[in-house]
Computed example of a mutant assay.
Amino acid sequence: MKFRTFSLLLVLALIAAFTLLNWQIIMAPTALSLGVAQVQAPLGLIMLGLMVALIALFLVYLLYLQTTVMFDARAHAKELQTNRKLADEAEASRFTELRSFLDLEFKRMDLADIAAKAALTTRIDQLERDLRLSVEQSGNSLAASMAEMDDRMRAGGSNLR
């Protein structure tokens, strides 16, 4: 039980005990003025009746407030659920859009990769041809230079003899 509820029940129990202990005095008749006339009635009983009426009025007001809060909470919960559903749908559509964007980008990157590989293969083939040609030319140059040196050496050797 909550502290507020317990304290309220305790106060009501104390008022009931006070009323029972002083019942004789509460029921004692007294001259009461109603403004236009005077009446003989028990003042304590009238005050007790007014207090009970006030407590009943507060309980009705409390029930009204609690009912209003419950209806508002239910309306807010429905609105929150609707907003959550809309947010989930928006998030799902963003994920779908992101997936399609990533698929498109990966396809574009694959095409760029294939084009780069083709260009690289072509360039490597060209460099290999150039290297073979260069090696052949160097080999031919070297062979010609060696033949020329050989001829000079033979020609120089026959002059020495």
Results as ranks from 00 to 15, higher is better:
Arg84Asp: 07
Lys107Gln: 01
Lys78Gln: 14
Gly44Phe: 04
Ser100Val: 12
Ile114Lys: 15
Pro42Cys: 06
Glu89Gly: 06
Ala92Asp: 07
Leu43Ser: 12
Val60Phe: 05
Phe95Trp: 09
Leu80Ala: 04
Lys78Tyr: 15
Met51Asn: 05
Leu102Tyr: 04
Tyr64Asp: 10
Ser100His: 05
Ala53Asn: 05
Ala77His: 14
Phe71Ala: 02
Val60Asn: 00
Leu98Glu: 02
Ala75Leu: 05
Met109Ile: 09
Leu48Lys: 12
Arg74Ile: 10
Glu89Phe: 15
Met47Leu: 15
Lys78Ile: 13
Gly44Leu: 05
Arg108Trp: 15
Ala75Cys: 01
Ala90Thr: 01
Glu105Ser: 13
Ala92His: 13
Asp113Ala: 11
Ser93His: 11
Arg99Met: 13
Ala75Asn: 08
Asp110Ala: 07
Glu97Gln: 09
Lys78His: 14
Ala77Asn: 08
Ala56Lys: 03
Met47Arg: 11
Asp88Leu: 14
Leu54Lys: 03
Ala53Leu: 12
Leu62Ala: 10
Tyr61Ala: 09
Ala73Asp: 08
Asp72Met: 00
Gln81Phe: 14
Ser100Trp: 08
Val69Glu: 02
Thr96Val: 06
Leu54Pro: 09
Leu43Gln: 05
Leu62Phe: 00
Arg94Pro: 07
Arg74Ser: 01
Val69Thr: 12
Leu102Ser: 06
Thr67Lys: 02
Leu57Gln: 15
Phe106Met: 12
Leu57Asp: 13
Arg74Thr: 06
Lys107Phe: 09
Gly44Ala: 07
Met70Arg: 12
Ala112Asn: 03
Tyr64Arg: 06
Glu105Leu: 13
Asp72Phe: 10
Leu63Cys: 03
Ala73Val: 02
Phe106His: 11
Asn83Asp: 05
Arg108Phe: 14
Met47Asp: 06
Ile114Leu: 15
Thr67Ile: 09
Gly49Asp: 11
Leu62Lys: 13
Ser100Met: 14
Ala92Trp: 15
Ile55Tyr: 02
Val69Arg: 14
Glu105Phe: 00
Phe58Glu: 07
Arg99Lys: 15
Met109Tyr: 04
Leu102Asn: 06
Asp72Asn: 05
Phe71Arg: 01
Gln40Tyr: 09
Leu59Cys: 10
Met47His: 12
Ala87Tyr: 05
Gly44Trp: 09
Glu89Trp: 14
Leu102Phe: 04
Phe58Met: 14
His76Pro: 07
Ala53Tyr: 02
Asp103Glu: 09
Leu80Asn: 00
Phe58Asn: 10
Gln81Ala: 14
Tyr64Thr: 03
Thr96Leu: 00
Leu65Arg: 14
Ala75Tyr: 03
Ala53His: 04
Leu57His: 06
Leu86Glu: 06
Leu102Asp: 01
Leu59His: 08
Leu65Gly: 08
Ala90Cys: 03
Glu91Leu: 14
Ala90Pro: 00
Arg94Asp: 07
Asp72His: 03
His76Lys: 14
Leu62Asn: 08
Arg74Tyr: 05
Thr82Ser: 08
Leu48Pro: 03
Gln81Arg: 15
Val69Ser: 09
Asn83Thr: 08
Lys78Asp: 15
Met47Val: 15
Glu89Tyr: 13
Pro42Ile: 06
Phe95Gly: 11
Ala112Arg: 09
Ala56Gln: 12
Asp72Ile: 01
Tyr61Glu: 11
Asp88Phe: 07
Ala90Met: 04
Lys85His: 12
Leu43Tyr: 03
Ala41Leu: 15
Val52Phe: 02
Asp72Arg: 05
